[in-house]
Nucleic acid binder design. Structure first.
Lengths: 196, 196
DNA sequence: CTACCTTGTAATCATTGACAACATTGTAGT
DNA sequence: ACTACAATGTTGTCAATGATTACAAGGTAG
């Protein structure tokens, strides 16, 4: 019989995986380091080698979330057409998809910030989305499909509309069967807001 | 010496007040029913008479938050001018003010929903904001300052832009000194998005 | 005045996050 | 190969917490 080796192999990754599952099912408060350890089959104190505190685990989860989200959004744009409208639609749809699949994670990603003790890596990761929006706008301006002006001034409202829509959708402010139509309306609204 | 009476008088309100303070300072995870009881000067189990679980207290806090927010937004509109632009600006500014003063509370208000076990009162309260937006739009349409069309279809994107801006702002996605300018830009953006 | 309902108390339980001391494993330098 | 040493897991322990139960005090309606 092969007894479990003393070292897990990749406990850190296992913790993150299980943690995200629990987060989805029971929220941040329902997440217990000890329970994670039990599920994975290590001692109660083992997780502390990788995440000093529970908050550190949550931060890592959020950071990973930003990584995945920005990768997803970039991929969505690469697969989309070239017009600004197509790209904005693709981006919003991808964002909505991520949010629908990981509502609790998205919430976590945007929950930690007002805390003064934000890990700098997290703060930096959260800035990547506005940058992505800025790039999209800049591209649209070059194509003459977006009005001229400082990129940040146009990008922020666009970003706000997209993020707000997604946030409201997962918060239940939008009925599930109205999401698709709402998404189209919001994108159309944003397109008019920054039309040349 | 006047010893504390057996009954507190209004323990429920005291709990909510202290809870909100703690929430602001240390977030939902840092909120402890026992600590609240200590601070107020009652026994550890006393809070359970008013809030069966910690989650129930958080829900009540969120519900109260929706009440205060919608009252604030209504008041802001009443004090504002009559034009759609003025009203939308006033509403957004009031929303931003509330969020800046109570970031953790706003976060809580929008955190609980993806949980299937949402108290119906809370779900209902969260619907009041979209309704308020719808009313604003309707008014704007009557004045000929907003394009015609189904109120929900126009109101949702406007609401999304406002909510998204506020959410990003308190999440740190917007530098503090850029908030004012960002607000103006977002409102202008929304006005163009639903111009007739 | 009495019976009952609300509100608070006391005592207890399992669970949790965190920490310290120790054990095991992998590895870098010799 | 041998030997430090760093990384990773384990055991044991602690105070704090959320929740529950049985009981006491205080209000209130008949």
């Amino acid at each position: 019989m092969t007894h479990r080796p003393y070292h897990h192999g990749d406990l850190r990754a296992a913790l993150l995986t299980h943690a995200e599952e629990t987060l989805k099912e029971r929220g941040p408060a329902g997440l217990s380091l000890r329970e994670l350890a039990r599920d994975i089959g290590v001692s109660p104190a083992a997780p502390s080698r990788h995440f000093k505190t529970k908050q550190a685990l949550l931060d890592a989860l959020a950071l990973e979330g930003f990584d995945r989200l920005s990768a997803l959004l970039i991929a969505a744009q690469d697969e989309a057409g070239e017009s600004f409208a197509e790209r904005l639609t693709a981006l919003t749809r991808a964002y909505m998809g991520f949010a629908a699949a990981n509502p609790a994670l998205l919430n976590l990603m945007y929950s930690v910030k007002y805390d003064p003790s934000v890990p700098s890596a997290l703060a930096k990761a959260s800035q990547r989305l506005p940058e992505l929006a800025a790039q999209l706008i800049e591209d649209g301006q070059r194509r003459g499909e977006v009005c001229q002006g400082p990129v940040e001034e146009i990008g922020l409202p666009v970003m706000a509309a997209m993020h707000g829509f997604v946030a409201l959708a997962i918060a239940g402010g939008i009925q599930a069967d109205a999401v698709e139509q709402g998404l189209k309306n919001t994108v159309a609204f944003a397109l008019r807001g920054c039309a040349p």
